[in-house]
Design a protein around this nucleic acid. Structure first.
Lengths: 205, 205
DNA sequence: TTAGTTATGTACCAATCGGTATATAACTTA
DNA sequence: TAAGTTATATACCGATTGGTACATAACTAA
């Protein structure tokens, strides 16, 4: 009705996202956030509520980007294609120039003080959700008879999620895009083949 | 010479380690640390220097435990045995009852404010060191001709480290010991065969 | 132009951060 | 026991944390 906002809400959110991504939820202070966003504290509180809500709104933007990638990857025709697509995109996204390295859902609040526990739990929920999507997709594969007998879709999904999570840490350790792509390639290659109906149970202690 | 210390230094360090492990470097405050250690602030500062030194000393204990595991695993006869041993032990250590879940070197300071950057760098150095150890061991395998042609020891080491790092995140997400052991087993099984042609006469792939 | 509304800027809040000065209590040695 | 030394406890430090009160500036609608 009256004086219009002097800044673009989504632009500011992207700036906040960048800082949260780079320093984590607790590592990004209100002072640093508002400075990066180019606004002052009262504007931030009036527009976004508080720090936690700001984080959740920035996180929403991040997750929607990630979901778009997931959707494409999960549409691949075979399980192995899904794996390759997903890991490759993960490697690329985690080393995208102009963005902080790694994955916000992994690094945003992996360990924190008790007062940030709700944020930590939210990120856990997101990670589980992504793994669930993969699990469902692999279950489809199995139902269609395209998984080797004895293969467990849940186990495969967990292995894939583990590798993707690990790539985030590797990115944070300084791994290059090329290195992560190599990881993705090797992990894909090692994936159980549809045709490889092996009953290799040599692992029995 | 005079009044002796009223607490066990190593016990206090273990309490600090537990808290750092659980909340990360920044997430563990001096107040919480000293309370957990059962001592007051001046005692902590007189004994350990400051927060960062306290962390490094706690970290030393952690790393020495981990190194013992590494030593045993790297002594396994074949590359695949090394992988299986390492991942299994990782799964167990990251879900050890009585300890926080996950790996301190991964979760201690994965993202933090600028002032904790030295600690973050130290953990990066440790992670790289562990990967280096694996790399060296795989290079031995290759030199002994026990790696499939075209296999790169560096790539293998990075893949293994990625999986181990990912297991830490999974533990933090709530994965059980059994789930992580399944991940370890599946990852080991997917590993490029090395000695199979020699010891087993059976199925090539 | 004027009234009403809303965003912005300054300056502040209590609580907590890591870190210490200081006084006292407890121990060892002589 | 007395002297000397060192650990402990209290109480504090400035800086920073997330969050606001309040006065002012800027806009819209009448």
């Amino acid at each position: 009705m009256a004086r219009p906002r002097g800044f673009c809400e989504e632009e500011a959110l992207d700036k906040a996202l960048d800082l949260f991504w780079r320093h984590g939820y607790e590592g990004a202070s209100i002072a640093a956030l508002t400075e990066a966003m180019g606004i002052n504290r009262p504007s931030m509180y009036a527009t976004f509520g508080n720090k936690e809500e700001l984080f959740r709104k920035a996180l929403d933007r991040y997750v929607s980007i990630k979901n778009a990638i997931f959707e494409k990857a999960l549409a691949e025709p075979t399980g192995r294609d899904v794996v390759r697509h997903l890991l490759r995109k993960a490697a690329e996204m985690m080393t995208e120039p102009g963005h902080p390295v790694g994955c916000l859902a992994v690094q945003g609040a992996i360990s924190c003080s008790d007062e940030s526990e709700p944020v930590r739990q939210e990120l856990i929920r997101i990670r589980r959700g992504h793994e669930q999507q993969i699990r469902d997709r692999f279950a489809e594969e199995q139902a269609a008879g395209r998984l080797p007998p004895g293969t467990n879709p849940e186990d495969l999904a967990m292995l894939l999620a583990t590798i993707a999570n690990g790539m985030s840490i590797q990115a944070s350790t300084g791994a290059t895009r090329e290195q992560l792509l190599t990881v993705a390639e090797n992990a894909s290659r090692a994936w159980p083949q549809t045709e490889t109906a092996v009953t290799d149970t040599a692992a029995a202690e």
